[in-house]
């Protein structure tokens, strides 16, 4: 049953026809109880204008496809309820990325950056523990505390909202990898007990980790509530300090890394 009508102002851009995008208003009847922005946008696509391009898949905040800027705030369309917003809702594509059409953006850049991060590199002796008279299940065992630290980052659904909200990525061409996905990915590998590569120096020098000024917008918009700044960026910054700014810690760290056979990327 139609409850009230909202005006949906959707960004439209067709690269074949338009030079630049514009907002078009659509009247959409809403239904009481759990209607989300994606439902409204799909209503427009099905009933009003079938040429509207959107990217969506699971409608359960699992796939990270329907990222957009709803009322200028980066959010998942499938997780933003209509009844939490006013009668006029603007829906725009993520502005940090080039628009392909309407609400669909080209996020390929993120995967290119991701491929630059040094891969998971396991300690050599773990590959063949029988040579040292140890069992596979003993050397590959990970303690619970280590699992907990890295598990949080595995929740990432790659919606790239954090990348979109980051003012360094969005407004300044600095070469910063961006907080979101990439530092989280690197942190999850760095905190893995079986991995022997330290990525902090690489992130600081090539990833532009120093450009981040801890303003925590990425943490605010994360639909999976990952503590991006507190648990990934700040620990990575501290690791970079260990290697590059703190002579005392550098000496200790160098000894520990030598003992464990770790390398700096």
């Amino acid at each position: 049953m139609a409850d009230r009508e909202v005006t949906l102002s959707i960004f439209r851009f067709d690269p074949e026809k338009d030079k630049e995008g514009r907002f078009v208003d659509y009247k959409v009847p809403t239904v009481e109880g759990g209607m989300v922005v994606l439902d409204a946008v799909r209503y427009v696509q099905e009933k009003i204008d079938t040429t509207l391009a959107i990217r969506w898949n699971c409608k359960a905040a699992r796939c990270g496809s329907c990222s957009a800027e709803i009322n200028n705030r980066p959010a998942l369309m499938c997780k933003t309820r209509i009844d939490t917003l006013g009668d006029r809702i603007t829906v725009a594509p993520m502005r940090a990325f080039p628009v392909i059409r309407d609400l669909v953006t080209d996020v390929d850049e993120n995967y290119r950056i991701m491929s630059k991060i040094p891969k998971f590199t396991v300690r050599k002796e773990l590959m063949n523990p029988e040579a040292e008279g140890k069992k596979h299940q003993d050397v590959w065992r990970i303690q619970q505390i280590n699992v907990e630290r890295a598990k949080e980052f595995k929740k990432c659904i790659e919606c790239f909202l954090c990348q979109d909200v980051c003012h360094v990525v969005r407004e300044h061409k600095s070469g910063y990898f961006g907080p979101p996905r990439h530092i989280v990915k690197a942190a999850s590998l760095d905190m893995h007990p079986l991995d022997i590569v330290n990525r902090a120096k690489f992130l600081n020098e090539e990833g532009g980790l120093g450009y981040c000024n801890i303003t925590k917008c990425c943490q605010e918009v994360c639909p999976e509530h990952i503590h991006i700044t507190d648990n990934a960026i700040i620990p990575e910054k501290e690791r970079a300090v260990d290697l590059q700014y703190d002579p005392l810690m550098h000496a200790i760290k160098r000894r520990l890394m030598k003992k464990r056979g770790e390398t700096v990327a």
């Binding site: 303690q143 501290e238 810690m249 464990r260």
Partner: peptide, 14 residues
């Protein structure tokens, strides 16, 4: 958290 509480350790058990 990083220096004293062990946040800087790659692996607690190791």
């Amino acid at each position: 958290r990083h220096v004293t509480a062990g946040g800087g350790a790659e692996c607690f058990g190791c």
